[in-house]
């Protein structure tokens, strides 16, 4: 089974680059690429919103819920949460209550910011996963963008939380080392160009059991991101773990 654990909805402003697509196209294209499940979040209807308002978050998450309802066997949802919004808990519980399996935290607050702590505590109570964006940009991160060290801080503080650090931390060498000693922190290998060695490095530093396939589609391509795993110099069993088994094991308890 292949699970793509990092997919976003198309935004209105992406149509000049990707063409004008209905959201169901994400599902059809994933299927064409042999993907069995996709895990979807929306970062905004018009464009990706770093500090979404209460209404913007509601609309974004409602779009994901609509896609989940349309493809209930295929689409898992993650609720986009802005910890700065006063009603974050209400929105989180709405998303979980309607069947989402976790939340997506992007760049509205760093993972080490105390604002994030109650959100993660709620995820622990609700027994859902946290997909946390991360980057270690040589040219500097955005103001509230988490580094892998922020993610490690969060993972260390909450060992009961299941956290997926996105994009292998953005910098495989430093990013993966930051979470190496935290068994509750996984990483996805989504996004970026299909550089050789990313998956191999992740396996050598974390072991295959803590690596999860994700594409970051539609900004990235399913096929290209799949090639990062399928063409990597690792064993067949490890590829299988990364491509789907690890994620399904995360879900495969009595939570969902």
């Amino acid at each position: 089974m292949i699970v793509d654990a990092h997919v976003h909805l198309y935004t209105a402003d992406s149509c000049c680059m990707f063409g004008n697509h209905e959201q169901e196209e994400l599902v059809l294209r994933a299927r064409e690429n042999g993907i069995d499940r996709i895990v979807v979040s929306s970062l905004g209807q018009e464009t990706y919103l770093p500090y979404p308002s209460v209404d913007e978050i509601y609309e974004a998450n409602s779009d994901v819920l609509a896609l989940m309802k349309r493809f209930p066997e295929y689409v898992y949802g993650l609720g986009y949460i802005n910890p700065r919004n006063a009603n974050w808990r209400e929105e989180l519980l709405r998303c979980i209550g309607e069947g989402m399996i976790g939340i997506k935290l992007w760049i509205s607050a760093r993972a080490s910011d105390p604002l994030v702590f109650p959100v993660v505590e709620e995820c622990i109570s609700s027994r859902v996963i946290v997909l946390q964006h991360s980057s270690l940009n040589n040219r500097g991160n955005l103001q509230d963008e988490s580094t892998p060290f922020d993610v490690a801080c969060l993972g260390r503080r909450y060992s009961e939380a299941d956290i997926i650090m996105a994009h292998a931390g953005g910098n495989q060498q430093a990013g993966l080392k930051a979470i190496a000693d935290l068994p509750n922190v996984y990483t996805d290998v989504s996004g970026g160009y299909p550089e050789r060695g990313i998956v191999e490095k992740a396996v050598s530093l974390l072991g295959a059991k803590r690596i999860i396939f994700g594409s970051d589609a539609p900004g990235r391509s399913y096929a290209v991101q799949l090639a990062k795993v399928s063409s990597s110099q690792i064993g067949t069993r490890d590829k299988k773990l990364i491509l789907g088994d690890n994620f399904m094991e995360l879900l495969n308890d009595d939570r969902f």
């Binding site: 697509h21 294209r29 160009y193």
Partner: peptide
């Protein structure tokens, strides 16, 4: 060049 639909577009 990456993105779902990008090359076709």
């Amino acid at each position: 060049l990456e993105g779902e639909g990008a090359l076709e577009n």
